[in-house]
């Protein structure tokens, strides 16, 4: 279970972007979060992935209350989440070849030996050829780079996936392929999913449940604004 309760978060404590929002995702289930751009859904996704410390509110991951975000969360807590961002260009270190990009979480967590095997397996899964794996981010397309970013998010076999507008920059066939990869992984691992987006058709088909940003605030936080 991923429980976000009464989260208030933002980049300036006087003007929070997210105010008193609560959201609960059951183990293994997939929730789509719909909202217009700029409403704060990406910030909420960052809070959920333990990448942003909320000004107030609590995050409980599988019964384990989280005391801080980023490096203040333990490595186990952080790596329980695989995160895929909207813009693969910004989410990839421009100096790393795709193969290193995908293997980086394994190396960072001291599992260097598994890197080669895991990269080969995941590359096949997301549809990246060996030749593409040797290239750097500026030498591949957005879609190819996003495939690598998804592989990186899956390489540590996270219990939760946070996809923040994962398919917004992609053409329809790549989007469908990546969603299929996520769903395959979830079916096999039982991981839960928070998919953030603004495309209702896609989220309705992809997720067990789709919630609208406005509903989230009114329903789940009766104390209101």
């Amino acid at each position: 279970m991923l429980e976000l309760s009464r989260i208030t978060a933002g980049y300036d404590p006087r003007r929070p972007v997210v105010r008193g929002v609560s959201l609960t995702i059951g183990a293994g289930s997939a929730v789509g979060l719909l909202g217009p751009s700029g409403c704060g859904k990406s910030t909420l996704a960052r809070v959920a992935a333990l990448l942003h410390r909320p000004d107030s509110g609590t995050v409980v991951v599988d019964g384990d209350p989280v005391r801080g975000a980023r490096h203040r969360a333990t490595r186990e807590q952080r790596t329980a989440f695989g995160v895929v961002f909207q813009q693969p260009r910004l989410a990839a270190d421009p100096r790393m070849r795709l193969t290193d990009l995908i293997a980086e979480p394994l190396r960072a967590t001291g599992r260097r030996d598994e890197a080669a095997g895991a990269v080969a397996a995941l590359a096949g899964r997301v549809g990246l050829s060996a030749e593409l794996l040797g290239r750097r981010p500026h030498e591949v397309s957005d879609g190819q780079l996003q495939r690598a970013c998804l592989a990186r998010a899956l390489v540590l076999r996270p219990r939760w996936l946070i996809c923040d507008e994962m398919t917004a920059m992609l053409d329809a066939s790549t989007a469908a392929a990546l969603v299929a990869v996520v769903e395959d992984y979830r079916a096999e691992s039982g991981a839960g999913l928070l998919a953030v987006g603004h495309d209702r058709v896609l989220l309705d088909r992809w997720c067990d449940e789709t919630v609208q940003w406005d509903e989230l605030r009114l329903e789940k936080s009766p104390s209101g604004v």
């Binding site: 961002f85 980086e104 960072a108």
Partner: peptide
Amino acid sequence: SRPYIDAAVSGGASRRRVTVRH
């Protein structure tokens, strides 16, 4: 504040590794 640093943090990289490697 770039997403690729977020990705590294989420991937379990320590502060030192984020600094030295990225």
